[in-house]
Design a binder for these strands. Structure first.
Length: 643
RNA sequence: GCCCACGUAGCUCAGUCGGCAGAGCGUAUCCUUGGUAAGGAUAAGGUCACCGGUUCAAUCCCGGUCGUGGGCUCCA
């Protein structure tokens, strides 16, 4: 009989009989580490604690605190959820129930939807199962037996899953008490190991994500080792709610949505100030980098969209209208208009790369259920640009765009993730073209040493793309910037340039955005700063608070001085006390407040109060003036990202 | 688009197991001229999302439409 030798964390070696399970070894290791072993990895693959170890196995032990740990105990919690549902509603069929970020869900096929009261009952039953501390056991059977077993139980979704597995597959299932579930594992050793649980919501979800298949009832929940961790988690969710751009947008009077225009946001004067600042900044940065700016029309003839491929590939997202008995479409993208502009002139290779920017208003008929504040709307302004170039310029030019995006995101203090999306199922062009385009994007990223994730099949219908996902203060990510290589549009529109040889050639084209859409970017900014914008973006930068009526004239004089320097300043001359005015200015997140009364009028100073630091004492008007101008010019970020 | 929940004053929300609709904030007017996060008084404000049904009577019960929220799918 062969022996298995394992090196323990303290470098001591221990010998085991063959047939030892990873659980037995984990127990020894766990004892030494003072931690609970909940699962193990053999050769990098998560396995159950009952899996046998061979001599050449590379073993890793998963504890509650290791990165995979939460997945394991949340997966077990999802089984506890399913068990509780089965106890209360025996007729319900089980679909799937994985661990997800921060929690888990389980999909059920039911005749009646779950009510909030049902959730409460299920939660109580789950706590009962945890209290019973049922051992979780792994079993393996062959595929045929598994099919027989789940047929008997009448679990048709489970059957479908098994039938998709290869003929010779060993099928694992798990039991805890009276409950059993098809599952690859791994799981906690017993249900009592789960700490605090909470069911968060119930929602509909399609079986296997396919809208043509049935709609299932999905219960979402989360679980943590301790009540404290659960409490912290729920507090983070509360913080996200406090930062919700829809709430802050209303409170700060930035924008609104109306029943009369679902998904078509209205921008209020204060929201427009931020928009305009963003757009002006965008224009400045682009002019610096050799971009020209154009504006193309919103409605264009249907023939153009047939030619561009949007008719065939994007029609279900487009709005149409009729002008003089001719079909027109409202543009969902800016490119076809840009193509027409390009074709007006004969272009020389000497003019390349030709960078043409457009803050273009596009309309897309998004499904009603997907609309979300400013993040997902039906009309939005893309900070678009089309770059025409020689094939040899692709890598350089894409790097230029990546650098521009990096610089602009940095100004706002954003961290971001990069993704590369490849050919989708519905796509124009040949595989070779796609491979070439994709490899160019990859080359640009690789040579800059960027780390990125590959999203297979997620590209646009005309080309592969690099996406920038911005991370907000509390770690959520949103897709904003995109760089899309397009070999199709130039072909379809027969774009040409005159090369050094005097002959016509086909240019390469890139579509790109940095903000993505002004609307979404503003939404993210609101949440990122929780409404406390850096001074350069603040709708009101300075508010002057006269103490009594006799100080208003002095306040107006200071206001005029600042106003002459394009500082956004107002005077709160309402008949209220200073305390009240400060309270309101603070709620409006105005960066600077100036209190003026008898003392200030006499000395010619102002009393400064800042949004972040409160009372700052007396300062000369001149000094304050210079301070604000410098602050605005620096685009400095406030220190609000500390959650 | 699909599943679930929701829709009451400008805002945040009570409320009516079917019988004249409520608070706080905000707004207006008046008093107060006050020194760093809410001074006081008075008043105006609602077809209870919309359309239909049941009923002596509907904001409430039922059906539909629209919208919003959380998900699915999709996406900047």
């Amino acid at each position: 009989m062969s022996k298995i030798i394992i090196t323990l964390p303290d470098q001591s070696k221990k010998e085991y009989e063959s047939g030892v399970t990873i659980g037995e070894i984990a127990y020894d290791i766990g004892k030494r580490l003072g931690k609970d072993a909940i699962a193990g990895k053999i050769n990098g693959k998560l396995v159950d604690l009952k899996t046998e170890v061979c001599n050449d196995s590379e073993i890793e032990i998963i504890t509650f605190s290791s990165p995979e740990g939460p997945d394991v105990f949340r997966h077990t919690t999802s089984h506890i959820l399913a068990q509780a549902v089965k106890r209360l509603f025996p007729e319900v069929q089980l679909a799937i129930g994985p661990a997800i970020d921060d929690g888990y869900y389980y999909d059920f096929a039911t005749s009646q939807p779950f009510t909030p009261e049902d959730l409460e009952k299920i939660e109580l039953e789950m706590n009962e199962i945890i209290r019973q501390d049922l051992p979780v056991e792994r079993h393996e059977i062959c595929r045929a037996d598994a099919i027989r077993m789940f047929q008997e139980k009448g679990e048709k979704y489970k059957l479908e899953l098994i039938e998709d597995l290869p003929e010779d597959a060993q099928i694992s299932y798990y039991t805890q008490g009276e409950f059993m579930d098809l599952c690859a594992g791994p799981h906690l050793p017993s249900t009592g190991k789960v700490g605090a649980i909470k069911l968060t919501s119930v929602a509909g979800a399609y079986w296997r994500g396919d809208e043509k298949r049935g709609m299932l009832q999905r219960i979402y929940g989360t679980s943590f080792l301790s009540d404290k961790e659960l409490k912290d988690h729920l507090e983070r969710i509360e913080e996200a709610k406090r930062r919700d751009h829809r709430k802050i947008g209303k409170e700060l009077d930035l924008f609104s949505l109306h029943d009369e225009g679902p998904g078509f946001p209205f921008f209020h004067p204060k929201g427009m100030i931020i928009r305009n600042e963003l757009e002006n900044y965008w224009k400045k940065e682009h002019i610096k980098r050799g971009y020209q700016e154009v504006k193309t029309p919103i409605a264009l003839h249907a023939d153009l969209w047939k030619r561009s491929g949007h008719w065939d590939n994007y029609r279900q997202n487009m709005y149409f209208t009729e002008i003089d008995e001719q079909g027109f479409a409202i543009k969902p993208m800016n490119c076809p208009g840009g193509m027409l502009l390009y074709k007006r002139d004969i272009h020389s290779y000497r003019d390349f790369p030709l960078r043409v920017g457009e803050l273009g208003l596009v309309h897309r008929h998004e499904l009603s259920g997907t609309l979300h504040g400013l993040m997902r709307v039906r009309c939005f302004t893309q900070d678009d640009a089309h770059i025409f170039m020689l094939p040899t310029q692709i890598v350089d030019e894409i790097q230029n765009v990546i650098k521009l995006a990096d610089e602009m995101y940095r100004v706002f203090g954003f961290e971001y993730e990069v993704e590369l999306s490849t050919r989708p199922e519905k796509a124009m062009g040949t595989q070779e073209e796609w491979d070439l385009a994709t490899s160019k994007l990859q080359e640009a990223l690789d040579s800059m040493g960027m780390s990125y994730k590959i999203n297979k099949g997620d590209g646009a219908f005309y080309g592969p793309k690099i996406d920038f996902h911005l991370k907000d203060c509390i770690g959520r990510t949103w897709q904003c910037g995109t760089i899309q290589l397009d070999f199709q549009m130039p072909e379809r529109f027969d774009l040409t340039y005159i090369g050094a040889d005097g002959e016509k050639h086909r240019p390469v084209m890139v579509h790109r955005t940095i903000f993505g859409s002004i609307e979404r970017f503003l939404g993210i900014l609101i949440e990122h700063f929780a409404g406390a914008f850096p001074t350069w973006l603040s709708p009101v930068q300075v508010r002057i608070l006269p103490i009594a009526d006799r100080h208003v004239e002095y306040a107006m004089k200071i206001k005029q001085e600042l106003f002459n320097d394009d500082i956004r300043v107002d005077v709160d001359d309402r008949n209220e006390k200073v305390g009240f005015k400060i309270r309101e200015a603070q709620a409006e997140k105005i960066p600077y407040m100036l209190v003026v009364g008898d003392k200030e009028m006499e000395s010619g100073n102002v009393s400064l109060r800042t949004r972040e630091a409160g009372d700052q004492g007396s300062i000369s008007t001149q000094q304050f003036h210079e301070m604000v101008v410098a602050d605005i010019r620096s685009k400095r970020n406030p220190l609000t990202c500390n959650t």
